[in-house]
Nucleic acid binder design. Structure first.
Lengths: 234, 234
DNA sequence: ACAGCAAATATGATGCATCATAATTTACTG
DNA sequence: CAGTAAATTATGATGCATCATATTTGCTGT
């Protein structure tokens, strides 16, 4: 379900480490600002530094990690500008995915989406924010999967690599999971109405992401007038 | 002008090799199906295998190169399905870029675009297909640059990594450079009409890319009923 | 005690040796 | 001569040693 874009990829140890770190990023197990050390990771994973270096270099390349100076590998902080740009791109791209998914989805796939929303509803009722967050992400992935666009899936996977740490941060700060906009999306897909599906996912990203934007703007403000936050930006 | 997405990237030898190979791909100096050997490249570039391996692994990761078996690194062949998917994505993404560019472009930037089109016109008049091809690509890059969306630029750069070898192949087979649709695009940008600009670039990709699609379909047909082409697909 | 320099340490970069294995060549047998 | 099997070669994977350098620690002199 989650292993997108691995199509045809020759499997070496580096790829395994890459997937490991990717999942850690997407699931928010790596926090923005957190530093990574190649040797340490290698020791932890029981490999030499080579595959770890491979993986990290790949993640740096797609900007899922940054390397300001040679010795300083960390999970990047999201900026407001970057978030807005990514949001705009996601609206186009996930809109496309939703449109295609609405056209193509069969009964089983629709049921799968409904099940994800149902579980998400349950998670929210249980107050299990982390699970809700995870299910939300899986819903978005499932949509792209149904759209049947593997290349698009790769692009969106890379985008999620960037969103993971941010979303985890926001949820840790008490952000609410936004499920509201998934219902109209489901309705549009059931009706095979591509345009409506695209609109719905746009709403989801715009309004559902409002909490995230707020969080970023607060962080930016706190950064401009530094009080005593936990991260004094080095 | 051409070095997109290198923002903040810590420069190591691997990145240099990556850029080298990227340029080779985008400029069509690597043909679809062509095989790459790490040791050979390292020898040619006068480095050890490590940086070359770094670079190649990164390119494999973003599917600009494939690695079917561990020993078999090559420039991938484009398929019709993949081309159509990428075209759809490009229409959304470059449409977005054109829209933003139309809104933001100042006089100097518009002049820059006009200059590129003028040079392209000249190149076509001179029958210099390769140069026309290069200028066409630079026009598209310039547009994204003007749009001021660095993240989008990265995505589109990766897409061009895939298009490069294909376009070179088509032009080698006598494909015509399509400049026609750049004029309405320029007009839309001059008028700061985002929607019209997006439509124009969509037309450019759809109709201008017709030659490419034709080429791919011919290749696919020849592959299904193999006569005596130069590439019998291994 | 503090400023400034020096030694030690940490850490990514690079090169390279070795390994495993797939592709190719060679050689032997019938 | 043909076919098969063994040997050789080619080539990426992996580990690791070494290097360069940024950072930290600690010593020395005023």
């Amino acid at each position: 379900m989650s292993d997108a874009l691995d199509t045809l990829e020759h499997d070496n140890l580096g790829s395994t480490v890459y997937r490991l770190l990717s999942n850690a990023l997407i699931e928010g197990r790596l926090k923005p600002g957190e530093r990574l050390k190649i040797r340490e990771l290698a020791a932890r994973l029981g490999t030499s530094v080579t595959p770890v270096r491979d993986a990290i270099l790949r993640l740096v390349q797609e900007q899922a990690l940054t390397m300001k100076s040679a010795r300083d590998i960390r999970v990047p902080h999201m900026t407001v500008a970057r978030y807005l740009e990514i949001r705009t791109i996601r609206i186009r791209l996930e809109g496309l995915a939703a449109e295609m998914a609405a056209q193509r989805a069969d009964a089983a796939q629709i049921a799968q989406l409904e099940e994800l929303v149902r579980q998400n509803q349950q998670a929210i009722a249980d107050g299990d924010i982390a699970r809700g967050c995870d299910l939300n992400q899986r819903f978005h992935f499932a949509l792209v999967d149904i759209a049947g666009m593997p290349f698009l899936q790769g692009i969106l996977f890379r985008i999620w690599l960037q969103m993971g740490p941010l979303i985890a941060e926001v949820y840790a700060a008490g952000g609410d999971d936004m499920l509201d906009y998934h219902y109209p999306l489901l309705a549009a897909i059931r009706a095979h109405d591509g345009a409506a599906a695209a609109r719905a996912i746009g709403d989801d990203l715009l309004y559902g992401g409002q909490v995230i934007l707020q969080h970023l703007q607060n962080a930016a403000a706190a950064d401009a007038a530094p009080a005593d936050d936990d991260q004094p930006t080095a």
